[in-house]
């Protein structure tokens, strides 16, 4: 594989993402009204909710790709690289989710952190996938990396519901979702909707590029030794 990681498809998605982001900023910062209670604080939600959605989507993609790699009929390193790329982007957005969530919590509830099951599970998911990325960096052959990280990703699927359930049982107090209560006005909901669409486009764009970069890295690893030997031979013949 050689050349840039962009294709016509990624360029189209990239342009759509940039246009969408401008549109999103217009709605999120200017066109949507302040909330009656939270005032400008509500605008944090326009980033928080889409990034949370995206982070969970990213981890689902990682889990499904990992399962696809482990299943013999569909075994391909492309699945492994997709899982890795998606987890990297997922961790980034999970970090944004936690940061914006705690800022919003400070504005709305007066505290940065509550021991709510959703919040705690999100934090655990973040740490778990940091571990997953560390496992990917352990070294060895591509197949070893793929098998090892796929098992770890699937174990995370086992872990997260258990963490969620035990925390929920431990602290049954729930913060009600604003959307479920119907507190958000139409234009606010629309801004959120725009955010979800734009962030999803951004995710697809980032994962496609990252997946291709990972494929190039793998190719370089495979052929790196051949290149080095050829170079030395050339030096010797000079």
């Amino acid at each position: 594989m050689s050349g840039p990681t962009s294709t016509r498809a990624t360029r189209a998605i990239g342009i759509a993402t940039i246009v969408g982001l401008i549109w999103f900023v217009a709605f999120g910062l200017f066109l949507s009204p302040d909330d009656a209670v939270q005032r400008k604080g509500v605008r944090i939600l326009y980033i928080h909710v889409p990034s949370a959605w995206l982070a969970y989507l990213a981890f689902i993609v990682t889990a499904v790709s990992s399962a696809a790699y482990l299943w013999k009929r569909t075994r391909s390193l492309t699945w492994d690289r997709l899982a890795g790329a998606s987890a990297e982007v997922g961790v980034l957005f999970m970090g944004i989710t936690l940061l914006t969530g705690s800022l919003w919590g400070r504005v709305s509830w007066g505290v940065y952190w509550v021991w709510d099951s959703r919040v705690t599970t999100t934090a655990f998911l973040f740490v778990t996938y940091l571990g997953y990325l560390a496992v990917r960096g352990l070294g060895g052959s591509h197949e070893q990396r793929a098998r090892r990280s796929a098992v770890v990703a699937l174990l995370a699927v086992l872990e997260i519901p258990l963490v969620h359930f035990s925390v929920e049982w431990w602290r049954p107090l729930h913060q009600q979702e604003s959307i479920a209560k119907g507190k958000l006005q139409n234009l606010m909901l629309f801004s959120l909707f725009v955010g979800v669409i734009v962030f999803t486009l951004l995710y697809v764009w980032l994962v496609m590029h990252r997946q291709r970069v990972l494929a190039m890295q793998d190719a370089l690893d495979d052929r790196g030794l051949e290149f080095a030997i050829a170079e030395r031979r050339q030096e010797a013949s000079l």
């Binding site: 655990f124 740490v127 778990t128 940091l130 571990g131 560390a134 496992v135 352990l138 070294g139 770890v152 174990l155 872990e159 258990l162 963490v163 359930f165 035990s166 925390v167 049982w169 431990w170």
Partner: peptide, 21 residues
């Protein structure tokens, strides 16, 4: 191989949280 030992707490502690609770 080296370097893996320091990874154990990062991987293990989040997973055993339900047992702690």
């Amino acid at each position: 191989t080296k370097g893996r030992e320091s990874l154990l707490p990062l991987l293990l502690l989040p997973v055993v949280a339900p047992v702690l609770i």
